[in-house]
């Protein structure tokens, strides 16, 4: 019995809902907290507003987007540069903010790491740092952009044109907004264009060993591969 030839799966060329590229602008607010040693940092971390945790983890990643190595969050950097506590700095540096969909769980992780370290190294708790740590807050506002994508080609075009703040907003900040271990780009590509594999590959891009510009280029490479396959090509 002859088998019918396999037809390529047809993916939608047009999204039912377009992708609206947004961006962000932020202001730094000077908080009331200040730590002169690790014990004070620990106390401040327990009490500070969520926006402070956000500022020194998620947001600092955007601000230092151009650094590929040696910088992941402000707490780790301070432990290294001002407190000379290299082991603690390493343990804080490995925190990947993308694993957290709420600030509360991220705060708990930070507090736990410092608590454990100070239990093992009690003298480090009150050793005065070379510079104090000032707890800041961040006021972040969303800025719409003129770029809209209704298909993969337009999506690639938009990605070329948006600022790195927009990449940050959709790729990193989205996790807190969506409360999901995912990002806006991947969700749209999977839901609207049935590109589940591409969406997954995008979601696995390592932001800690790449700049945000590098993230853009990596996403574009994945999209270009999809565009090169016949069933994903954009409309004529």
């Amino acid at each position: 019995m002859a088998t019918a030839p396999q037809l390529p799966t047809t993916r939608p060329l047009w999204a039912r809902s377009p992708f609206y590229f947004n961006s962000t602008a932020h202001l730094l607010r000077i908080g009331r907290g200040k730590a002169n040693n690790l014990q004070e940092l620990l106390e401040a971390l327990r009490l500070c507003p969520d926006s402070s945790i956000f500022r020194h983890t998620f947001q600092t990643l955007e601000e230092h987007h151009f650094i590929k190595e040696g910088f992941s969050n402000d707490f780790s950097h301070w432990a290294f540069a001002a407190c000379n506590e290299v082991e603690l700095a390493e343990r804080l540096a490995i925190i990947d903010v993308r694993e957290f969909t709420s600030i509360a769980t991220l705060r708990d992780r930070l507090v736990l790491i410092i608590e454990e370290y100070l239990q093992k190294n009690p003298r480090a708790a009150t050793r005065t740092a070379m510079e104090p740590f000032y707890l800041m807050d961040s006021d972040l506002v969303v800025v719409p952009t003129p770029y809209v994508a209704r298909n993969l080609e337009e999506f690639a075009d938009g990605l070329h044109k948006i600022s790195i703040h927009s990449i940050y907003y959709h790729f990193i900040d989205a996790r807190l907004r969506l409360k999901l271990n995912n990002n806006d780009f991947s969700i749209w590509l999977e839901k609207e264009l049935d590109l589940a594999q591409a969406a997954d590959r995008i979601n696995r891009i390592d932001i800690y060993t790449s700049t945000l510009e590098g993230v853009r280029q990596n996403i574009l490479k994945i999209i270009e591969i999809e565009l090169a396959t016949p069933d994903s090509a954009g409309p004529d």
């Binding site: 969520d50 600030i103 972040l140 506002v141 900040d173």
Partner: peptide, 14 residues
């Protein structure tokens, strides 16, 4: 200016 004039609501995400 936008924040003070009530035209932008900051930190809708957090």
């Amino acid at each position: 200016f936008q924040i003070l004039l009530g035209m932008a609501k900051p930190n809708a995400t957090i």
